[in-house]
Amino acid sequence: MQDTLETELKQLIVDALMLEDVNPEDIKTDEPLFVEGLGLDSIDALELAMAIHKKFGVRTSADDENNRQNFHSVASLAAFVRAGQAKNAAAAEAAASEAG
């Protein structure tokens, strides 16, 4: 399950950012995504955040001080997405119980 999410994220990075010379399997899970690692830039981060919201329903706040940590690597992104999905599920459950 964990591997699936990380693989999905790698594929998403390649597709959303149109990285022509990079294959998803070339991206190491713990490798930094920005500057010295995969070499992504701040506009890439912006596009990646939008793609994550679209695919996983997890919204990123531009003012969140944890963004640097969350966007550090595929592993940290996967943890962020899992936490966001769990938060969304809990909110949906709370809303359903209130309605019921």
Binding site: S42, I43, E65, N67
Partner: peptide, 13 residues
């Protein structure tokens, strides 16, 4: 300008 947050670009743009 940006303050080191990867998503600061959104605000600047």
């Amino acid at each position: 300008g940006g303050r080191g947050n990867p998503l600061d670009a959104a605000r600047v743009v």
